[in-house]
């Protein structure tokens, strides 16, 4: 899973601070940019501009939150998976998302913020997560559609992040991308079983495609002309390709897959342009996207409520674990003393 194009919200972090830059800082920044330009990895102890650090904390933590919130819509079908093989595959997949959340929180922690602080930002509503997870999963075909489309879009976004200038993030992404590719194939295979199944199953598959197609395209974030702050992230090599470039790649890769399934992409304007070798597609309804960002999506409330409930219900368990660890330590000290 992945967070949508983050630059729409990342501007604040990327803006240079208004105070004057000292000569020494200017030299450090120059050296930093040279290293980035030379494709050297920036490591946690290295000097880095404050804006770079803030942008990364925001992006990595949003990405981590998205993994964790993303466990909910898919987890919704674990207890209802139609075969034991599918049940195991879905459980393992949702577990992988949790693992991705874990590596990403760890990567964010290398930048000097704690996981608890980041989780607190998610629960208070301060931090964002990918809007895609504010859509519901009413049918089993949604599990296929999420794997195929949402993970497919995530891979387009994430593969370039494996070359991100920040070392810990780039390394986490290598592992995540490997697993996401597996999830995407699994999702597609699930869709294939439905598309080749009974008329009712095929209807289920088409319905899911109808609902997930446009939100998947929105995962790449606003159009380039609306996304003025990509430039700094490009220079820092946090971002490698523009939102529109990545979106186009996704459409080009996905349309033939839908054709193979015998499903129809819900876009009457979709056509192949033999001259450019790309598919042209209709205009995206950004009103819906913006409303979801504002909290008005079909599941925004449920998702955050579910995460808050987990946090609140788990408090006594975490307190017990801490208390027990302290007791053990004390007993060990007594014994040693």
């Amino acid at each position: 899973m992945y967070t949508q194009g983050l630059d729409a919200k990342a501007e604040q972090g990327a803006q240079p601070s208004p105070r004057l830059v000292t000569e020494q800082e200017a030299a450090l920044q120059g050296r930093f940019q040279e290293r980035v330009d030379a494709e050297e990895k920036i490591e946690p102890r290295d000097w880095m501009p404050e804006g770079y650090r803030r942008t990364l904390v925001r992006q990595i933590s949003q990405h981590a939150h998205s993994e964790i919130v993303g466990m909910l819509p898919e987890g919704n079908w674990i207890t209802r998976a139609p075969t034991l093989r599918r049940k195991v595959a879905l459980l393992a997949k949702v577990q992988d998302e949790g693992g991705h959340g874990l590596y990403l929180y760890s990567a964010a922690e290398t930048l000097g913020v704690s996981r608890d602080e980041l989780v607190g930002q998610l629960l208070s509503g301060k931090a964002k997560y990918s809007s895609i997870f504010n859509y519901p999963t009413p049918t089993w075909a949604d599990i296929g559609a999420i794997g195929w489309l949402v993970d497919g879009a995530a891979i387009m976004n994430q593969v370039p992040l494996c070359r991100c200038s920040y070392g810990p993030y780039a390394r986490a992404m290598v592992r995540i991308c490997r697993e996401e590719s597996f999830h995407q194939r699994q999702g597609y295979e699930l869709m294939l079983a439905l598309a080749q199944g009974t008329p009712e199953q095929k209807r289920m598959a088409q319905d899911a495609l109808n609902r997930w197609w446009w939100p998947s395209l929105m995962m790449f974030g606003p159009s380039d002309d609306q996304s003025a702050h990509s430039a700094q992230n490009m220079a820092w090599k946090i971002k490698r390709f523009s939102n529109d470039e990545l979106r186009q790649r996704f459409v080009d890769a996905t349309v033939p897959q839908a054709e193979f399934l015998g499903l129809t992409i819900p876009d009457p304007e979709l056509r192949f342009n033999a001259g450019t070798g790309h598919y042209e597609f209709g205009a995206i309804d950004w009103t819906e996207f913006n409303e979801i960002l504002k909290g008005n999506g079909p599941c925004n409330r449920e998702r955050i409520e579910a995460r808050r409930k987990v946090w609140d219900d788990g408090a006594w368990v975490r307190e017990a674990a801490t208390a027990h660890a302290a007791k053990r330590k004390q007993r060990a000290l007594k014994k040693a003393g």
């Binding site: 674990i78 949702v94 219900d313």
Partner: peptide, 29 residues
């Protein structure tokens, strides 16, 4: 146990409970 997936008190524990669930469903199969 699979009902816990996504809802456990800690992320590490979520992963651990899911592991156990996976093993058990595997045995069942």
């Amino acid at each position: 146990l699979s009902e816990w997936c996504g809802h456990a008190p800690e992320l590490e524990e979520d992963i651990a409970l899911t592991n156990v669930a996976l093993d058990l469903v595997g045995h069942a199969r």
